[in-house]
Amino acid sequence: MTAASLLARGLRRLGTHALTWGLTLSGLLLFTFLLSRLSPIDSALQWVGDHASASSYAQARLALGLDRPLPLQFAHYLGQLLHGDLGMSRSTSQPVLDDLKRVFPATLELATVAIVVGSAFGLSLALLSARYPGGAIDTLARVFALFAYSLPVFWLGLLALLLFYARLHWAGGPGRLDDVYLYTLPQGSGFLLYDAWRSGDRTLLANVLSHLCLPALVLALHACANIARLMRAGLLAEMRKDYILASRARGAGPWRVLLAHALPNAGALLLTVLALSYAGLLEGAVLTETVFAWPGVGRYLTTALFAADTAAILGATLLIGLCFILLNALADVLIHFFDPRSV
């Protein structure tokens, strides 16, 4: 097959993927749109207040476009989104988009640290249990996964706070840093780890880390179990194949076969698992952030829940959904580059 036809085929496949991403995105948009219209809170009434006259109420409905047919309203909604208009938050009196820009780095930082920790531990566990299947570490990993799937993160977070913060004083408490540093922190990217490192202030960096470690570890637990379980199965499936036997016959040791032969071939699976775990972490952050008073998208969402702040709820939902779709798409593209067989 010529290079050109291979490229054409690859592009066609990416096109099919792109269609799925587009459909998913429109599904997400339709979901948030319908929720905003199904909401029992009358947005025209919200606009004019409870004591407005019938005529000003009708005028508000007209101005908000609530009298038009639903498809037209949906088109209008899409237009607003394209202009970055997610509506105003009732609880913060700010545009939802600005709020989300402000809180998103906190969530991204937390989820990124958690995925690094989770994949390091998870992959090590997977390698060890694939090297000695049925052994002590394998059994331990199974029991660990069983418990990780059964522990509610919000409860674990509370217990971790109780033990490591309140009793042992090993870790920082809720929030991203102690109040003392709140005003000395240089204005920066919003990624505190990076900002603190750049400021060169050691104590500040230590404080940021001590606040980050508990929520990141609690959040990483589930991802770690997921990665360990799926990668173990993937690696064992590779180890049963003929090429492993062939390289063993040529004298490659068991570790070499596992690390240099089986692991690269399970790379596509690893990418998928990592992308999905990362997306799952962004979602899991909703509960973890609430427990640790972490000022990210999750806590923004839960605060909006209590205030019945529909625009903020739907904005945060859109953002997290968008991250999901992007990560899925990223996994598709990366797999396509690294492992063209598996598409």
């Binding site: 799925t20 979901f31 905003s36 909401s39 979602e283 969402l301 019945a308 959904g321 899925n328």
Partner: peptide, 22 residues
């Protein structure tokens, strides 16, 4: 396609949004 579409959405967050609004 519809199935894949729903699979690629964050379930807990969508459930939260739905319960919050309805």
């Amino acid at each position: 396609r519809l199935t894949d579409m729903v699979l690629a959405l964050p379930s807990l967050v969508l459930a939260l949004a739905m319960v919050a609004v309805l």
